[in-house]
Simulated scan of single mutants.
Amino acid sequence: MSEYPEPVAEIPTGPVAVPPRVAALTGGRELVPVWVNGLGGLTFRDGGADGAAASYIKWVAAGTPELDLAAEAERLAWARRHGAAVPEVLAHGADASGSWLITRALSGESAVAPTWIAEPATAARAIGAGLRALHELLPVAECPFEWAIPARIARFEERVASGESPADWSDDYRELSVATARALLHDPPAVDRLVVCHGDACAPNTLLGADGEFAAHVDLGSLGLADRWADLAVAAWSIDWNHGPGFDHLVYEGYGIEPDQERISYYRLLWDLG
């Protein structure tokens, strides 16, 4: 078994069937599959036609409540209004077959592109710097969205009620009983600093420019108010999963903060189970 949580998304290595609705929305143009979410979501790059700018289209089949593209569109629009470096929403909608979100392509490459997999220290620092920029920029007092602990614990309880057991958790937590995990989740550390969190600050969701500096954030479907360590703990953990061990401390360095082991431990547990 892996030392880290099983990946829930990945760059596809083979052909990906284009859903009929996606083909219709993009004029039947040839699309490049760029991401497959373990929950069933797909992302394609559309090179555009007749000189139009490139875009990305996300697709979620009907019956996948975990992925709410309308909620993501709302969060992206709000973050952009406040100056965040995030994609511009071009269109979104839904029908009986599923839902979609089309955004304008941004310059830069994901931190898990081959260029940056080969430069893990650069990627780690840029991810930390990008989170700091987001946390400093977005106004807490005006944020209408939450990424609250109680709702995430409720998700844990739903998973347990559905039959999930510790055997399904990452190696870090597989030795815990459900009762112990529940007790730990219900004993969060005091909030260090309330910010507008990204909500899915894993390495693939930071874009880097050609100079290796932070360029933009993508995939903000869970953006909302939370302790900054809810982002930081997972961002650094994600460097381990994607780039290998030994670089996670550079996320904190890029952010400009010393690691807080109590909060890191709590928010990684919450991420894995909630």
Rank of each mutant, 00 (worst) to 15 (best):
P12I: 03
A49E: 15
V32T: 15
G63S: 07
R29V: 15
A24C: 08
E262I: 09
T26D: 00
P15F: 04
P259E: 03
Q261C: 08
A70V: 11
C197T: 14
E119D: 15
G209Q: 11
W116H: 07
S107M: 01
Y267M: 10
E142W: 00
E175Y: 00
R182G: 05
E72R: 03
R155Q: 13
R45W: 07
R155A: 14
L225C: 09
L39K: 07
L134Q: 05
L134E: 05
A161W: 08
A148L: 06
L194M: 15
W116R: 04
A215D: 09
D211C: 10
A226Y: 01
S97M: 02
E66Y: 06
V36E: 14
G48Y: 07
L106G: 11
D219V: 00
R152I: 07
R159H: 11
S170C: 14
D231W: 02
Q261M: 13
A123G: 12
P144I: 10
A154R: 05
D187W: 00
A70M: 04
A9I: 03
P188L: 11
S2N: 10
D95S: 02
P15N: 02
E142M: 12
G256W: 05
R125L: 15
E66H: 10
P144W: 05
A91H: 14
L76R: 01
P166G: 09
L25C: 12
G224N: 03
E262K: 01
G47V: 10
G48V: 05
R21P: 15
A94D: 05
W229Y: 15
G98S: 04
A183W: 08
R80G: 12
H135M: 09
R174I: 05
G163D: 04
T26K: 00
L207I: 06
L42Y: 08
A179T: 08
D171H: 02
L106T: 06
A53W: 08
Y173T: 09
L90C: 14
L137I: 12
A23K: 04
R263S: 02
G212E: 07
I11W: 04
R45G: 03
W147D: 08
N205T: 03
A111T: 00
P12H: 04
H217S: 09
H186G: 11
G224Y: 00
V191T: 15
A161H: 06
P144A: 12
P245C: 04
H82G: 13
E3T: 13
A235D: 06
V140I: 10
G51C: 07
M1H: 11
V218C: 13
T26R: 09
P19R: 01
M1Y: 09
R182Y: 03
A70P: 02
D68P: 14
A230Y: 00
E88P: 10
R155L: 13
A9Q: 03
